Amino acid sequence: MKSQPYLHTREDIDQLVEGIYRALETTEERLDGRCDDIYFPMDLSISALTSKVEAIQGEMVESQSYIARLPEASLSIDRRNNISTNIHN
């Protein structure tokens, strides 16, 4: 007895293809979700660090301009004596 090959109707094939596309969409959504879980927290961390670095750089510029406006300080602790403490008389 010879078995007949099963012939799929157009409707059967459409249903199979539809199932495949549904599975692909579900898989893609899951992968997108996992990528979001990994990428976005890291992106937020990098953004936060970048903001902090920029703030620190701004503070450094302010400090440097403040120091530049100060009158020049004497190199000696005793302003009347400009001799280094390493030089012995």
Rank of each mutant, 00 (worst) to 15 (best):
M1C: 02
M1S: 06
K2L: 08
K2C: 05
K2V: 08
K2E: 02
S3I: 11
Q4T: 14
Y6G: 01
L7D: 07
L7I: 11
T9A: 09
E11W: 08
D12N: 13
D12F: 08
I13V: 14
D14M: 04
D14P: 00
L16A: 11
L16K: 09
L16S: 10
V17Y: 01
V17E: 05
E18S: 15
E18G: 15
E18I: 06
G19K: 08
G19Y: 09
G19L: 11
I20N: 07
I20D: 08
R22P: 00
R22N: 04
A23P: 02
A23H: 13
A23M: 13
A23W: 09
L24E: 12
L24S: 06
E25H: 10
E25L: 07
T26R: 10
T26D: 11
T27P: 00
E28Y: 09
E28M: 12
E29G: 12
E29L: 15
L31T: 05
D32P: 03
G33E: 15
G33D: 09
R34K: 13
C35P: 00
D36C: 06
D37K: 08
D37L: 10
D37I: 03
I38Q: 11
I38G: 02
I38V: 15
Y39S: 06
Y39K: 11
F40T: 12
F40G: 01
F40P: 00
P41S: 01
M42I: 03
M42A: 08
M42E: 05
D43V: 09
D43A: 14
L44H: 04
S45P: 00
S45C: 07
S45K: 02
S47D: 08
T50I: 06
S51W: 08
S51H: 10
K52N: 09
V53S: 02
V53N: 03
E54P: 00
A55S: 06
A55F: 04
A55G: 07
A55P: 00
I56T: 11
Q57A: 15
G58L: 04
M60F: 03
V61H: 04
E62R: 15
S63I: 14
S63Y: 12
S65V: 12
Y66A: 09
Y66V: 05
Y66T: 05
Y66R: 12
I67G: 01
I67F: 07
I67R: 05
A68L: 02
R69M: 11
L70F: 00
L70Y: 00
E72T: 13
E72Y: 07
A73E: 09
A73R: 12
S74Y: 03
L75W: 06
S76K: 00
S76P: 00
S76W: 00
S76Y: 01
D78G: 02
D78L: 05
R80H: 12
N81Y: 03
N82E: 08
N82T: 06
S84I: 03
T85C: 04
N86Q: 12
I87G: 00
H88I: 12
H88F: 12
N89Y: 06
N89I: 07
